[in-house]
Design a protein around this nucleic acid. Structure first.
Lengths: 203, 203
DNA sequence: TTGGTTTCCGAACAGTGTTCGGTTATCTTT
DNA sequence: AAAGATAACCGAACACTGTTCGGAAACCAA
């Protein structure tokens, strides 16, 4: 099975070659503006060759989508060492905002852009996005068990927290923060995150 | 000047005719998928005729963008009657979420889609979006003057509140709420809004 | 009626995602 | 090693997009 294995490996290598080129173009141009022809040129292959390895543009997108979530999940998983759940939660908020600030383009791809994904509800449950969320909910639950957030529903609170973080990040990524003040976008969003944390502390 | 006036009026009528067709197509298909040719067909004109009244696709978008904000601003302005500023703020949160739920497509156009707007910072200050925001900030300021939200910066808090509302609405509009629970999206977002209000009350 | 604008349309340009037929190159079997 | 089968790749094409341009109508002033 050595030959078949090598073949499979080569096919996998070609896929990652395409994905590397695609990542460059996607993050540079955004989802809509990035074209298959651009990606093909980036890796010096013909456009139609890409279709030998990916069914459609959306499939390439999905892979990068997952990659982004793996990146984020990795950064939040580090915080598992923090034993106080509320401290961990606060740190996670910071990590999330930091991720959005420093990976603007990835954030766009992960949370804002919506390509025509065919198989939606199917593997939604197993996706990285779902895992990330579940991780947040579990931390909030820990907080509640530790006596924090009295009389509040864990899922509701998780949704509200994540929404808040996402809202700030989304406004940041789309440069919609200029209407606020003369502060820099980075400053504004970090102050916003701090305000959210303050609110959570007072609960 | 009667003839020139009539001419001007006719031109204006043609613009609104286009805008009406465009609204239909934009809200049905979304910004990217809506094409000039579709809009042209909707109103039985040739695609190039549209370019006689609008410089580009983005300009048509901008008009609808403004229209959406006028709609939202109208709904929040009604609440000026509520004299208690904190009650007014809470009601505004509800109105905002309700607007997002019942005007999903408009919300998309107003807050999420970003077309290639050429003249950005220019009239940003005068736009409806800016007005809506200023309205929110002023209400928060009133709350602070009335003794609520001690030791908090009005702009920071406004940004955080709006971000939270926007985050929920954005997730709702992009159907990203399914990963949460088995509740309906509407239920989830309304519970989320209620949670936010509870948090504000406890401040 | 003539001449000049204003309004409109058809055709075209350059770009997009995607498909298809054919051409290489590689591997399997004889 | 030769012949056939399969895999990998590419060029051309299809149907679509936003936008531009030249010319044809329609309208209006003289």
């Amino acid at each position: 099975m050595s030959i078949a294995e090598r073949k499979l490996k080569e096919k996998e290598e070609m896929r990652t070659l395409i994905l590397n080129g695609a990542r460059k173009v996607f993050l540079r141009e955004g989802y809509e503006s990035a074209s298959i022809r651009n990606i093909a040129e980036e890796i010096s292959y013909s456009p139609s060759s890409i279709y030998f390895y990916f069914k459609e543009k959306g499939e390439i997108f999905q892979e990068l989508h997952e990659e982004g979530f793996r990146l984020l999940l990795g950064k939040t998983k580090v915080l598992d060492q923090v034993e106080n759940p509320f401290e961990r939660l606060k740190a996670m908020c910071g990590v999330f905002i930091d991720f959005a600030i420093h990976n603007k383009d990835f954030y766009n791809l992960m949370f804002i852009v919506e390509p025509p994904m065919k198989k939606k509800a199917d593997d939604e449950k197993n996706s990285m996005g779902h895992q990330t969320l579940q991780h947040l909910i579990s931390v909030v639950k820990e907080c509640i068990e530790a006596g924090k957030f009295k009389n509040m529903d864990a899922e509701n609170l998780s949704f509200t927290i994540l929404s808040s973080l996402h809202g700030m990040s989304a406004l940041f990524c789309k440069d919609r923060t200029s209407t606020f003040t003369d502060r820099s976008s980075e400053q504004l969003i970090e102050d916003g995150c701090q305000t959210l944390v303050t609110m959570l502390e007072r609960m």
